[in-house]
């Protein structure tokens, strides 16, 4: 049974986490996140960082696609802009990493606005196709521009903090996780204000939104800007994490991956972006684990890993769209609701 939800002022009712239990859970999660690197193996730390990067990017895509209703198949390409910016700055300028990340994000936001300009004229699928086209163009630019190292791409030095190189998952964890957490918090805040409401209004009924006082182009472009800013930051984190950026680092398949992540997690919910990105990052690892178990009996299992993963991705997209269109977040909500009423109604 849910208790303790009596509120005495509007601020309490507008809070992100409004029950004591929720606050407790968040506190526990933070504590766990702080303790995690000290107990986890490098493999798990590696995965945690990867999950966090994907959460950051998926949250960005969720703002654009899940909340504003503008489908993009360019999220990976936007990430590449951030990644290349960070790599170039790190190699040629040697500026501090936080500045590099910020510049990467801002530059990506500019690119995002450019890609978003057709969004007033074309909608829906046409826009999705325009973002594919933008991905192709960006890929070409990175593969041919001397500054970005052509097909070889760029190898970059690690991020440095007070002379300390952040080159192990343990150290990178302390960079990636807080940045991601701030980004998710920012996204959650966005939807407590008029900006977020405008995004949702555009998604649900863009024509009447205009008559109610929302300038469409401005907010569509703003959504593109925020979303690609997130992608750029995520791409920058990605660059610091892998330290090699090539044109093939961010293929179209990755854009589909992020789209799949928000579909599976739940479009238009912050929790959905988190759950979906973590889930989709873990699925290949789970498959690897299963393949390892099966190998003694079926030696070729590892060779099948790549195609099975492709099939599972596809099947997850299709399955969630048909059977659970609101994604994991909706399942989580159902579980919560069950406990809110338990034991009076089961």
């Amino acid at each position: 049974m849910r208790i303790g939800t009596l509120k005495t002022d509007y601020a309490a009712d507008e809070a992100l986490f409004d029950t004591r239990l929720q606050k407790l859970l968040i506190l526990l999660a933070c504590a766990a996140a702080v303790l995690f690197p000290f107990v986890a193996s490098p493999y798990w730390l590696f995965l945690a960082c990867l999950c966090a990067i994907n959460v950051a990017s998926a949250t960005g895509l969720n703002i654009l696609t899940g909340y504003t209703g503008l489908v993009s198949l360019g999220q990976a390409a936007f990430m590449s802009v951030g990644a290349y910016t960070v790599a170039v700055l790190e190699i040629h300028a040697g500026t501090p990493f936080l500045l590099n990340l910020l510049v990467g994000g801002l530059l990506t936001a500019l690119v995002g606005i450019g890609v978003g300009i057709p969004s007033l004229r074309v909608k829906g699928l046409y826009l999705a196709i325009a973002t594919i086209a933008a991905s192709v163009v960006l890929h070409f630019v990175f593969a041919h521009w001397p500054l970005t190292g052509g097909m070889q791409g760029l190898s970059m030095p690690p991020a440095r903090l007070f002379g300390l190189a952040l080159d192990q998952p343990f150290q990178l964890y302390w960079l990636i996780l807080p940045v991601t957490a701030l980004m998710v918090l920012g996204a959650a805040n966005l939807f407590r204000t008029r900006v977020g409401r405008a995004f949702i209004a555009i998604r649900d009924r863009d024509i009447s939104a205009e008559v109610l006082g929302i300038p469409l182009l401005r907010y569509k472009l703003m959504s593109f800007a925020v979303s690609s800013f997130y992608a750029g930051l995520a791409g920058g984190l990605w660059a610091y994490f892998f330290r090699v950026v090539t044109p093939e680092s961010f293929p179209l398949v990755n854009s589909i991956f992020y789209l799949a992540a928000i579909i599976v997690g739940g479009m238009g919910t912050i929790l959905g972006g988190i759950l979906g990105a973590v889930f989709m990052t873990m699925v290949p690892e789970l498959l690897k684990f299963v393949a390892g178990l099966v190998t003694p009996f079926y030696p070729d299992a590892l060779a099948l890993l790549a195609p099975v993963r492709t099939i599972v991705f596809g099947a997850l997209i299709v399955g969630f769209l048909i059977f659970e269109p609101h994604g994991l977040a909706e399942i989580w909500r159902r579980i919560r609701r069950f406990f809110h009423l338990w034991p009076f109604r089961t």
């Binding site: 699928l125 789209l259 579909i263 195609p307 099939i311 596809g314 099947a315 997209i317 299709v318 769209l321």
Partner: peptide, 14 residues
């Protein structure tokens, strides 16, 4: 549209 993207992925893996 996204269902067909998923379908493409399934077929390619198959």
């Amino acid at each position: 549209f996204m269902v067909t993207i998923g379908l493409g992925s399934i077929l390619a893996g198959f």
